[in-house]
């Protein structure tokens, strides 16, 4: 039971840290969020292209960020 409680405590700590990080991301300045979106697009584009779907990540220089 102790081991399980230990795991639960660790999982709770990890989930709380994830939640905190999401709130920190939500508070980023908008241009930084746009940069993050472009990064997400580039990561997703590789996977989507492998599936045959054509997507075009935005250009950071074109969007001015």
């Amino acid at each position: 039971m102790d081991a399980l409680d230990g795991v639960n405590a660790e999982v709770t700590r990890i989930l709380a840290a994830k939640e905190k990080r999401r709130h920190e991301l939500a508070r980023l300045p908008f241009p930084e969020k746009v940069r993050a979106v472009i990064q997400l697009q580039e990561m997703a584009a590789t996977i989507l292209r492998a599936r045959g779907k054509i997507v075009k990540p935005w250009s950071a220089s074109r969007t001015g960020v």
Binding site: R22, F30, K33, L40, V55
Partner: peptide, 11 residues
């Protein structure tokens, strides 16, 4: 929505 939340994927 991304203005208020964490960045989410959109094209």
């Amino acid at each position: 929505a991304t203005f208020y939340t964490e960045p989410v994927l959109t094209f």
